[in-house]
């Protein structure tokens, strides 16, 4: 998966699956940035169809509703939607 990496404090592997047009995805990204969390993200709507299908498959595994934003943490858990409290709890912010 071609992701864009954002430098910050290592809180484990944090992957944001989002859409470039989605305001809640933008809020999630800004929240991670303002808390100096190291993460990588991908805007699924901007991908070419083959890559898009692959990422959608990955998303489906974590979040069967396939909604955005989905935050995958350490390849072991996920937070669906911009749920600030839950993200804080999971990342110990």
């Amino acid at each position: 998966m071609n992701t864009i990496k954002v430098e910050g404090t290592d809180k484990g592997h944090v992957l944001l699956l989002g859409l470039s047009t989605c305001i809640w995805c933008k809020k999630t990204k800004e929240f991670l940035e303002s808390n100096n969390v190291q993460f990588e993200y991908v805007f699924v709507d901007l991908l070419e169809s083959e890559e898009k299908d692959k990422v959608k498959e990955t998303l489906k595994k974590w979040n069967p509703a396939c909604s955005y934003p989905t935050l995958v943490l350490n390849n072991s858990s996920c937070v669906v939607g911009f749920d600030e409290e839950k993200i804080k709890l999971e990342l110990l912010i």
Binding site: T21, C22, D45, S67
Partner: peptide, 17 residues
Amino acid sequence: IVNEKRYGYQACPCRLA
């Protein structure tokens, strides 16, 4: 508007069209 230009219809910006 971005979605209108991209897909030809105003799909919800928070969903993947």
